[in-house]
Amino acid sequence: MKLNVVSRGPDTEGPNSRTLPPIVLLHGLFGRARNLGYFQRRLAVTRRTLAIDLRNHGDSPHGQMDYTSMAFDLMETLAEHDALPATLVGHSMGGKAAMTLALSRPEAVSSLLIADIPPARTGHGSFTLGEAMLRIEFPSYLNRAAADEMLLEAIQDADIRNLMLQNLRLGENPGWVIGLAEIVDSMTNIEGWPYIPEGHSYDGPTLFLAGETSPYIRAEDHPAMRRLFPNHGFEVIEKAGHWLHVENPARFLQLVEDFTAAFPG
């Protein structure tokens, strides 16, 4: 499946702007490429960047979801855009897709930054949220203020609710523009982690970021992180939970810029 890509490059080409691997930004569940626009603009000052809508999200096609298929989507899409190998920066579900690609096709990934997700089964209310979103009955017309009020019961956090509003078609005949039914139907796979054969690992530079108050990366996940990604670092972002790039964007950007500068290719 070829995915929708938002490409952005340096305004002026430096000596390494075309020779260094591009930076690929991958959103999490219910996100989309344009949610990462601030970080893409900052990184694109010196590097070619691609922000990608994963399947069922943004403007990409819809279909059943599992990480093997999503990794193949990435491989096919990046090859079409002459963007291999690439530095992958993935949050949550996007991080799992990035890890799966790195483990299955390590030659395609020059370095890897994973935001608040381990290589393990996870699940902290996403299925309940997805089902609640599916049950919403839309009026014949919907503006942004009314949509925000409509989502308030299911999503109390204003920043997260603002991101979710971007998945709505407003105005006449409102509704979800994402493949919400396919997402909910695939939630067991999304919360899961694919089988990785014994001996497989990704030896390239890797950095795991965790939100200080997030429950996603647990102490028991670190042995798998060391086994599958032996050359990894680990940083905690203070004053942030799972949506660490939303809750502490300055620190998140600093760590991404430092990592991509330290391991440019």
Rank of each mutant, 00 (worst) to 15 (best):
E191K: 02
L209T: 14
A219T: 15
G211A: 10
R218F: 05
F229N: 01
G204K: 04
E220L: 15
N231H: 12
F252S: 04
E220I: 15
E247V: 09
P215C: 10
R218Q: 15
L152I: 00
E212D: 14
T188N: 11
V256A: 14
F234D: 13
P197F: 01
N231D: 14
D203K: 07
Y195I: 11
L168Q: 04
S186N: 11
L170T: 11
H242S: 06
L168V: 12
Q166A: 03
P230K: 10
E220G: 13
A158Q: 08
D159L: 12
R226Y: 00
L152F: 00
F263Y: 15
D258V: 13
L180E: 00
A250L: 03
L207D: 06
L170H: 08
G192P: 05
M225V: 14
A250D: 05
W176E: 07
V177N: 04
S186H: 11
V246D: 10
N162E: 07
H222K: 14
M164Q: 10
N189D: 09
T260N: 05
G192Q: 13
R251S: 08
L165P: 03
I217C: 08
P205M: 04
A261W: 10
S201Y: 03
A154K: 03
E247T: 11
S214M: 07
S214K: 05
F259V: 05
L253S: 12
G233D: 14
W176R: 10
T260V: 14
A219Q: 15
Q156S: 10
Y195R: 09
Y216L: 09
V246T: 13
T260H: 12
T260C: 10
D157Q: 08
I196P: 02
F252R: 01
V256N: 06
T188P: 05
T213I: 11
E198Q: 10
N189C: 09
V236P: 09
F252E: 02
V236A: 08
A261C: 13
Y216S: 06
L209N: 14
A262Y: 02
R226T: 06
I190E: 02
L170K: 09
W243R: 03
G171N: 10
A219D: 15
D258K: 13
R227C: 02
E220F: 14
H200N: 14
N248I: 01
